[in-house]
Design a protein around this nucleic acid. Structure first.
Lengths: 230, 230
DNA sequence: CCAAATCTTGACGAATCCCTGACGCCGAGG
DNA sequence: CCTCGGCGTCAGGGATTCGTCAAGATTTGG
């Protein structure tokens, strides 16, 4: 097992050896993998290829400015969280205000635990932003597989575990007609020991809870599907 | 380099062409990308798919009220900053008070620079709130991973090591439903040799210590998650 | 080495959920 | 128009799941 990838890789672009060593020490202690680059060009290419979960950028760097790296990444559509790291307060003005798409900044000298806390916060936020987009939406019905919440017309609806799994599976395959046998093996489990009529009952439950906005359509003789037009 | 994505995208939902043109002009001059939708339904779907950094919503809209859009997004767990935009003062009462999760509001007529300033402020606030403190906050409960302190409604609460790790992990993944197996492997360790019921007991302990403000929700048949709404 | 705190386990009860079977309606086909 | 099979509906028994408690095991601190 490689200890590097437990929590993901942090890319540190910093030319002062004393600082990068410190960052490596404290971040790896927290379970992050750490890759250090000491000049801007190498840092940019590492950011493009290594897919780090966050990047710590020194503002003053040889060969390419830290702000320049961030700007290029953003222009390429790369929104990996970036923490700027700067010695002078007057540099702060250039990175905050999000003109560069920075997520946070640190001023030297900094305490290692402060850095760790901010890195974790930034990574957490990025993960959250990425995962909150995973909601399945069909008409008025919204199903979030991560939070396991269902809303219909803005109102939250309580589903049981089986009901949720069933609705999620139908919405994930929206438009496709799924047979009861398919639903049983894919929602209930590989070896479904329950009768196929059980599906009907749960479909009815879900429909009752979703009310008029239920997207579940019955395909007589075949099975069920989730779609907009009833 | 596409100038649109330097600072992120602002979604404007506004049916009066004169106003949306003005907003587009001034916001894009500031480096934001701008997407305009002129009716509520299209606006809602754009908000779901485009992942804007902020949304400007007209309160009076054809096909769907601006407040309705905001309410639905919030119900789906989408907390993108929203600025309401309204012509009449009496409408203001409906959006402020944050019952709708609005971040700010503007009354027509407005000066373009005022709008720009508020948008920038709202975006900055959202980013700062998520990344600057390092503490995990959810309702009245605050968990600081660095100092390992927990406060509920301002009062400090003593948690044991396991209890703290459990709560921290749940809050770090707030909203996400975690199974007992996940919690065991991620909180107890990679090779957890303890029974899954152990999780229940510690959850109960944490709940007892947090009292009425406990953010831990049990998702029957699945696991636990930390969130505001019970 | 002892004592206190913490962690884990097992049992029990209450609440909830799931499956089944029966009944009746409805659409398809003759 | 009639028949038949698929489907919606309902309610009850059986099975899970979870909260709670207490006791034993383990760790921590002195």
């Amino acid at each position: 097992m490689s200890p590097d990838s437990v929590k993901g890789l942090i890319l540190v672009v910093e030319d002062e050896r004393a600082i990068s060593d410190l960052l490596r020490l404290y971040l790896s202690r927290e379970g992050f993998g750490v890759q250090v680059e000491s000049d801007g060009v190498a840092g940019l290419s590492a950011a493009r290829t290594l897919h780090p979960v966050a990047i710590i950028l020194d503002v003053g760097l040889p060969s390419m400015d830290g702000t320049e790296i961030c700007r290029k990444l953003r222009a390429e559509g790369n929104w990996t969280p970036v923490l700027f790291c700067t010695a002078r307060d007057d540099e702060v003005d250039r990175v905050v205000g999000l003109e560069l798409g920075a997520d946070d900044y640190i001023t030297k000298p900094f305490s290692p635990r402060e850095v760790v806390a901010r890195v974790k916060a930034v990574v957490r936020r990025a993960v959250q932003a990425a995962s909150s987009t995973g909601a399945l939406v069909l008409g008025e019905v919204s199903v979030d597989p991560v939070t396991r919440r269902v809303t219909v017309a803005g109102e939250q609806v309580q589903l049981t575990a089986t009901e949720f799994d069933l609705l999620e599976h139908l919405m994930a395959n929206q438009g496709r007609v799924l047979s009861r046998e398919q639903l049983l093996s894919e929602v209930w489990g590989y070896a479904a020991i329950v009768g196929t009529r059980t599906v009907d009952v749960h479909v009815a439950q879900v429909r009752a809870k979703l009310g008029d906005h239920s997207p579940i359509r019955t395909v007589r003789g075949v099975g069920y599907s989730a779609e907009l037009e009833p």
